[in-house]
Structures are given as structure tokens and as C-alpha cells.
Amino acid sequence: PVYLSVKADNSMFIGNDPVTDETMITALNALTEGKKDTTIFFRADKTVDYETLMKVMDTLHQAGYLKIGLVG
């Protein structure tokens, strides 16, 4: 499974590897070998604001990742 996490300080990680807004999709493409039907499990600290969550989800959708599971 692929886990994308947003921490309380808005830092992002794919698994244990830090990513930025600019590198997130490139890292996901490498990890999933470009398979856009891969489910991305998205988790965020409860203090992360809604705007940040939606920005990340919008970026995922624009890149073609449509299977996003929200996890606690």
C-alpha cells in the first residue's frame, strides 16, 4: 500500500520519505510505476486545515490518482 501523510506542521511524507508539493507526484509515479489506479491511503494530522487537505487531494486528482482512501 502507498501512504501519503500530512503532519501537523504541513510536512508531507510518502511512506517515511519526505516530499514537497513539487515532488509529490514524481515520487508517487516512481513508487507506483505510473499505475494511476493504485489506491493512495491519505492520512493527515487532525490539526491540518481543510484547505491544505483539499489542495493535496486536488493535486492527486489532477495527476490521475482517483483512488484515494482516507485513513485516521
Score class of each variant (00 low, 15 high):
A44G: 05
T26S: 15
A63N: 12
S11P: 01
S11I: 11
D58L: 11
M54E: 07
F41T: 05
M57F: 11
Y3P: 02
K36I: 04
I68P: 01
E22Y: 07
T32D: 02
D58G: 11
D37S: 08
Q62N: 13
R43V: 13
G69Y: 15
D37Q: 05
D9F: 07
K67P: 04
V56N: 02
V48T: 08
Y3G: 02
M57L: 13
A8S: 10
D21H: 15
I14R: 00
T23R: 04
A63L: 05
L60K: 00
F42K: 00
V2Q: 03
N10A: 10
T32K: 02
R43M: 14
K55S: 07
E22H: 07
K7L: 15
E22G: 08
D49M: 10
F42V: 15
E22K: 10
M24A: 02
L60W: 01
I68V: 14
G34L: 06
A8P: 06
L31M: 08
G34W: 06
M54I: 09
A27W: 10
G72M: 07
T38Y: 07
I40T: 00
D21K: 13
T39G: 04
N16D: 13
V19I: 12
S11L: 14
L28D: 00
K35Q: 10
D45A: 07
F13Q: 05
V48Q: 03
N10L: 14
I68N: 02
E22I: 09
G64E: 02
E33M: 14
K36R: 11
G64N: 02
D9N: 08
P1M: 12
K7T: 13
M24I: 13
D58A: 11
A8G: 13
F41Y: 13
F41N: 07
E51H: 10
Y50P: 14
D58C: 07
T38I: 13
P18N: 06
L31P: 01
Q62V: 06
R43G: 07
L31D: 01
K67M: 14
Y65T: 00
F42C: 07
T39A: 11
M54F: 09
E51R: 10
G34N: 09
M12K: 05
I25E: 04
T47N: 15
T47L: 12
V19T: 05
T23A: 05
Y65N: 00
D21M: 15
F13D: 02
K67F: 13
I68L: 07
A63K: 02
V6F: 14
D45C: 05
Q62H: 09
S5W: 13
D17V: 15
Y65K: 00
L28I: 14
T39E: 13
V71A: 06
Y50F: 11
T32Q: 02
Y65S: 01
L28T: 01
S5E: 12
L70I: 15
T59C: 08
A63H: 11
T23N: 14
D21Q: 12
P1K: 09
V71Q: 10
K7P: 02
T26E: 14
T59P: 01
T47I: 09
G72Q: 12
A8Q: 06
N10I: 03
V6N: 01
I68R: 01
K46R: 11
A63I: 03
G72V: 14
V48E: 02
V6S: 01
D17M: 14
V6T: 01
N10T: 07
G34P: 02
A44T: 09
E51F: 10
S5R: 10
L31A: 13
A8K: 09
K67L: 08
E33Q: 14
K7Q: 14
T47R: 11
A27C: 08
L4W: 02
D45L: 02
D58N: 13
I25G: 02
T52R: 12
D9G: 07
K35S: 08
K67T: 12
G72E: 14
T38A: 07
G34Q: 04
G64L: 02
S5N: 11
A8N: 08
Y65F: 09
H61E: 06
D37P: 03
G34V: 03
L60P: 00
Y50D: 09
M57Y: 08
Y3N: 05
K67G: 04
T52V: 14
T38P: 03
K35N: 14
Q62M: 10
A27E: 06
T20S: 09
A63W: 05
M57G: 02
G72T: 14
N29T: 08
L60G: 00
L31G: 03
N10H: 14
V19S: 02
V56W: 06
L60S: 00
T38H: 06
D9Q: 06
L28H: 00
T26P: 11
T39Q: 15
D9A: 07
S5P: 01
T23E: 08
V19G: 01
K36W: 05
D49W: 05
K46T: 12
T39W: 15
N29F: 08
D17P: 01
D58V: 11
V48R: 02
A30L: 13
T38E: 07
D49A: 15
K55T: 08
L28W: 01
A44M: 09
A30E: 12
T20G: 05
V71G: 09
I40E: 00
P1C: 10
V19D: 00
A63E: 07
P1W: 11
P18T: 07
E22C: 04
K55M: 09
L31K: 08
A30P: 01
L60A: 01
P1G: 08
N16C: 10
I14F: 06
L66F: 14
V6R: 03
T32G: 02
M57P: 00
V6K: 01
G64K: 02
D17E: 12
T52G: 04
L4I: 15
L53Y: 08
L66T: 14
D9P: 12
R43H: 15
G34H: 08
T52D: 05
G15N: 12
G72F: 04
E33W: 06
G64S: 02
Q62L: 11
Y65R: 00
T26D: 14
E33C: 09
A44S: 07
T32E: 01
D17I: 13
G15Y: 04
F13L: 07
I25D: 01
K36G: 04
V19Y: 03
T38C: 07
K67C: 09
M24R: 00
G72K: 08
D37V: 03
L70T: 13
K7A: 10
I68K: 01
K46S: 14
K7C: 10
N29H: 12
L60R: 00
I14K: 01
T32Y: 04
D37G: 08
I40S: 00
V56L: 14
Y50H: 12
V2R: 02
M54W: 10
V2A: 03
M12I: 13
T52H: 08
Q62P: 00
S11A: 09
A8C: 07
S11G: 06
D58H: 12
L4H: 00
K35H: 11
Y3F: 11
M24Q: 00
G69P: 04
V6H: 02
V2S: 01
E33N: 13
I40N: 00
F13M: 10
K36Q: 07
G15I: 03
V2I: 14
Y65E: 00
I40K: 00
E22A: 11
V2F: 05
V56D: 00
K55D: 04
G15P: 01
A27D: 04
F13N: 03
D45I: 02
I40Q: 00
T38S: 07
S11W: 05
N10E: 07
Y50L: 14
D49T: 13
L53V: 15
E22R: 05
L70R: 03
L60Y: 00
D58K: 14
M24H: 01
T52W: 15
L4Q: 01
T26V: 13
T26C: 06
G69M: 15
V6A: 02
L66A: 05
A30V: 11
F13K: 06
D58E: 09
V6P: 01
M54L: 14
T52Q: 09
S5T: 15
D9E: 04
M12T: 04
T59I: 15
L53S: 03
T26R: 08
T23P: 01
K36C: 04
N29E: 14
A27N: 06
K7D: 09
V71E: 11
T52I: 13
P18F: 09
I68M: 04
S11K: 14
G69T: 15
T59V: 14
T32N: 03
L70D: 05
N29S: 06
G34D: 06
D21P: 15
D37E: 09
A63R: 02
T47W: 10
F13V: 06
D49I: 08
N29G: 05
M12Q: 02
N16Q: 10
A8H: 11
L70P: 05
L70E: 07
A27H: 14
D45Q: 03
G64H: 02
M12A: 02
S11F: 07
T47V: 09
K36S: 05
Y65V: 01
K7W: 12
G15F: 07
A8M: 08
T20H: 03
K67Q: 12
T32C: 06
T52E: 05
I14D: 01
F41L: 14
E33R: 09
F41P: 01
K46V: 12
A27T: 15
T59R: 14
E22L: 10
F42T: 03
Y50A: 11
D58T: 12
L53Q: 05
T23K: 04
T39L: 14
L70N: 06
I40A: 00
M24E: 00
T59K: 14
M12H: 02
K46Q: 13
K36P: 05
G34I: 02
N16F: 08
R43A: 14
L60I: 06
L66H: 13
A30Q: 12
V56C: 05
R43P: 01
K7E: 10
F41G: 02
G64R: 02
D49Y: 05
I68A: 04
V56Y: 08
T39S: 08
T23I: 04
P1R: 09
P1V: 15
K55G: 07
K55A: 09
A63F: 05
D17L: 14
D49E: 13
N16E: 13
D37N: 09
L53R: 08
Y50V: 12
G64M: 02
L53H: 03
T20L: 03
L70H: 09
T32P: 01
G34T: 05
G69F: 14
A27F: 13
H61M: 12
L28A: 01
Y65C: 01
P1T: 12
Q62A: 13
I14T: 01
